Deep mutational scan, measured.
Amino acid sequence: FHVTIHVGDITFHIHGVSEEEVKKLEELVRRGADWREIKKTIEEIEK
């Protein structure tokens, strides 16, 4: 999957994300995680 996440003024683009990881990111966004937490999760996914 290709994912784009907008957190305030920050936009993250992630490529090659599995469905499971998409759900993890959706959950973070849904519970209102700040951009640092989302960035950390994205960095883990990209490894």
Rank of each mutant, 00 (worst) to 15 (best):
F1T: 11
F1V: 14
H2V: 14
H2Y: 11
H2I: 15
V3E: 02
V3T: 06
V3M: 09
V3Y: 06
T4H: 07
I5A: 01
I5V: 08
H6Y: 04
H6C: 08
H6G: 03
H6R: 13
H6E: 09
H6D: 04
H6M: 12
H6V: 14
V7W: 12
V7R: 03
V7N: 05
V7F: 12
G8H: 03
G8W: 01
G8P: 01
G8C: 04
G8M: 04
G8Q: 06
D9F: 09
D9R: 06
D9P: 11
I10P: 00
I10F: 15
I10N: 11
I10M: 13
I10V: 14
I10R: 15
I10K: 15
T11L: 05
T11N: 04
T11C: 06
T11Y: 10
F12A: 02
F12T: 02
F12G: 00
F12W: 10
F12E: 01
H13N: 04
H13D: 06
I14A: 05
I14S: 02
I14H: 01
I14K: 01
I14W: 05
I14C: 02
I14P: 00
H15T: 11
H15E: 07
H15S: 07
H15R: 06
H15A: 06
G16F: 12
G16K: 02
G16M: 14
G16L: 14
G16V: 15
V17Y: 14
V17W: 08
V17S: 05
V17C: 07
V17T: 04
V17P: 06
V17I: 13
V17E: 03
S18T: 15
S18M: 08
S18W: 04
S18D: 07
S18P: 06
S18N: 11
S18F: 05
S18H: 05
E19D: 08
E19W: 15
E19G: 11
E20A: 13
E20G: 09
E21C: 08
E21S: 11
V22W: 15
V22N: 05
K23C: 06
K23M: 13
K23D: 08
K23I: 14
K24T: 12
K24S: 08
K24C: 05
L25A: 00
L25H: 00
L25K: 00
L25S: 00
L25E: 00
E27Q: 10
E27G: 09
L28R: 02
L28G: 01
L28S: 02
L28V: 08
L28Q: 07
V29G: 03
R30E: 12
R30P: 00
R30T: 12
R31T: 10
R31C: 06
R31V: 08
R31I: 11
G32P: 02
G32A: 06
G32L: 08
G32D: 06
A33T: 06
A33Q: 03
A33S: 07
D34T: 06
D34I: 01
D34M: 01
D34N: 08
W35E: 13
R36Q: 15
R36A: 13
R36I: 15
E37Y: 01
E37N: 02
E37C: 02
E37Q: 04
E37P: 01
I38T: 01
I38C: 02
I38E: 00
I38N: 00
I38R: 00
I38V: 09
I38Y: 01
I38F: 04
I38Q: 00
I38A: 02
I38S: 00
K39F: 12
K39G: 09
K40T: 13
T41N: 08
T41H: 12
T41L: 15
I42Y: 02
I42W: 04
E43S: 08
E43A: 11
E43F: 07
E43Y: 06
E43K: 10
E44Y: 07
E44Q: 12
I45T: 04
I45C: 05
I45D: 01
I45W: 14
I45R: 05
E46N: 12
E46P: 06
E46F: 14
K47H: 14
K47I: 10
